[in-house]
Every structure is written in C-alpha cells, then in structure tokens.
C-alpha cells in the first residue's frame, strides 16, 4: 500500500497580481524593523523575557493597525501573553526558517479576526520580515484581514474567520496525528469567548473527547467582551470551564495575562493523557493600553494616530 502525497503547503493561489504592497519605508526605519533579530523559542526564556516579547507583540499590533486603518485591537492585545508563552516559552515546536516542517506543532486561530496578534507573533519569531506587518489588510498583502491560507504566509495553517470553524479543523489535525500517523505532534487552537456560542465548537469538543485527543489544547480567550457588549449580556457563557468539563475535557482556568500561570497551564496540558485540554485563559481585552482595557468597544476598531502614540508610550518594558 502506498501513500498518495500532494504538496499541501505553501498554497499560493490567492495572489491577485505579482506585486505585493510595499511597507512604508519611513515607518520601517522608525520602528527599526530592518535590523530586527527574531526572538528565540526556548523553555529557558524567563517570565520577564516573555513579558518583554508580549509587549513587543503588542507594539507591533498597534503599529500594524494604525497603518492599516482598520482591524481588531482589543482581542489581539489582550491575548499577547498567551501567544508569547506559546511561541517563545518552548511550548510549541517549530522552525521559523522551515515553517512547513512535517514534525512541527500546529496552531489554528479559530478566532480569525484576532490575526494581528498571530501575524505579530510570527514576525517576532522570524517566520517573515517584520516590515511586512505594515502591509496588514492592504491589497494583495499576505496579511489578509482574516487569515487566508491561499496567500501562503508561513505559519498560517488554515484559513479562518467564519467563527466556530477553526476548532473543528484543529480536531482533524489532532486526529490525523494521534490516530492515523501516530506521531507526537501537538495541535493548539485558540477561540474567542463570544465564539463559543457557535454550535460547531461543541460538536468539535464532542469529537475531540470521543477520540481521546490528548494532543489537542484548546485555549479560550475569556475576556468577557464581544462586539455588541459584555458576553454575559449578549449570550450567557458561564460557567465556561464546567461546560468543557462536562464534555470530558481536562480544564485549566488561569490568568491569561500572567506568563507564569500560562506556562504552568501549557505544561500541565502536555502531561494529560487520554483526553483533550481546555485552557480557559481569563484575559482583559486591550490589556496593556489603559484606554482600551476591558472595554468591548475596542473589539473591532483600530487606534487613531494619536491613540496609537499614546498606546505605544504605555507599552514599554
């Protein structure tokens, strides 16, 4: 019996012409992007180092959004600590220079609208030049308004954006790894909290538990905010952890803006056998920027130039 193989990554059918948008040169130089050296991913990185990287991710989010003049601020800023821990704390295994390596761990951003934080994280890890962050949402950019696999951006495993779909895709990846290929790769998926209203999330949870996918870690970014308001006003979600417990997940509730708690949570998730893990990461939307913090009105808009200056001045160290 043979394996019928195809080249799956990178896909590059989505280019709408040969020319990619040029990042603003002045800004590239102002932000020092041309001299940037990627951060290393290591369990030896201290909590302080990871915090510094998270702050850098936040600065890059603000810089990209103010240049794009549209996009989501709140969720990306609030979840930067989760991303810093995952990608730089030695949690995920990847090689930014060989992004489609067959033994990589995989990350699926089910909450596709939060892509500014993923793009900023990938750039800080060296998947692509940081200057490209300044092309976010521009015509023919690899950094689409919601992740598009068709643009072939290193580190983007799947198109996402229609809420509720990414977790099911991650379950399929974990099923492939654990039940068909029987390898030791791990799959991570991040959902927004408003997103878990979608029924497909709970179907995916059923399937993940049914097939004992202990190689799957779901992170719920629990910031209690969605576009229309506080989640408990729009659609009551509590108790989130108990819901996943009832679906036979191992559940860890932690402060999602605390690096050391996140590290412990990911470590615990890796040690669990026989069932998937859900990390309910309690975060504040817009964390790190005083005028955005815990304010749902920052879900889906970018800062103005003045607000960006203010935000960048707060996001130090």
């Amino acid at each position: 019996m043979a394996r019928l193989t195809h080249t799956i990554y990178p896909l590059a059918t989505g280019f709408h012409g040969p020319i990619r948008p040029e990042p603003n040169k002045e800004l590239v130089s102002k932000y020092g992007y041309e001299h940037f050296t990627a951060y290393k991913n290591s369990p030896d990185n201290s909590d302080e180092t990871l915090h510094e990287i998270a702050q850098e991710i936040r600065r890059d989010i603000i810089r990209a959004l103010v240049e794009a003049k549209s996009g989501h601020s709140g969720g990306p800023l609030g979840s930067a600590d989760i991303f810093a821990t995952l990608y730089f704390g030695g949690v995920m295994r990847y090689d930014a220079k060989n992004p489609w390596s067959p033994d990589r761990d995989r990350f699926v951003l089910s909450a596709g609208h939060m892509c500014p934080v993923l793009y900023a994280t990938l750039a800080n890890a060296g998947f692509f030049p940081k200057a490209e962050l300044l092309t976010l949402r521009k015509f023919n950019s690899r950094l689409q308004g919601h992740p598009g696999r068709d643009m072939g951006l290193p580190g983007i495993e799947s198109s996402t954006g229609s809420l509720g779909q990414g977790l099911g895709i991650a379950v399929g990846m974990a099923l492939s790894d654990k039940r068909v290929d029987k390898n030791d790769r791990r799959v991570y998926a991040l959902t927004g909290d408003g997103e878990i209203s979608e029924g497909e999330i709970w179907e995916a949870a059923l399937i993940a538990a049914h097939w004992d996918l202990d190689n799957l870690t779901v992170i719920v970014d629990r910031n209690n905010c969605q576009i229309d308001g506080r989640t408990e006003d729009v659609m009551k979600l509590n108790p989130v952890g108990d819901k996943f417990r009832a679906f036979n997940f191992h559940v860890i509730e932690c402060n999602g803006n605390n690096i050391s708690e996140l590290r412990a949570a990911f470590k615990e998730a890796q040690s669990i056998k026989g069932r998937p893990t859900c990390i309910v990461a309690e975060t504040f939307m817009g964390h790190g920027v005083s005028f955005m913090e815990d304010d749902y009105r920052w879900h889906g808009k970018p800062p103005t130039s003045e607000q960006a200056e203010q935000a960048l001045s707060e996001l130090v160290g």
Partner: peptide, 8 residues
Amino acid sequence: LVASGLAL
C-alpha cells in the same frame, strides 16, 4: 471541518 484538518 475535521475532514479539512485531516486533509491539511
């Protein structure tokens, strides 16, 4: 969706 993840 699971099929998509398997295919990827």
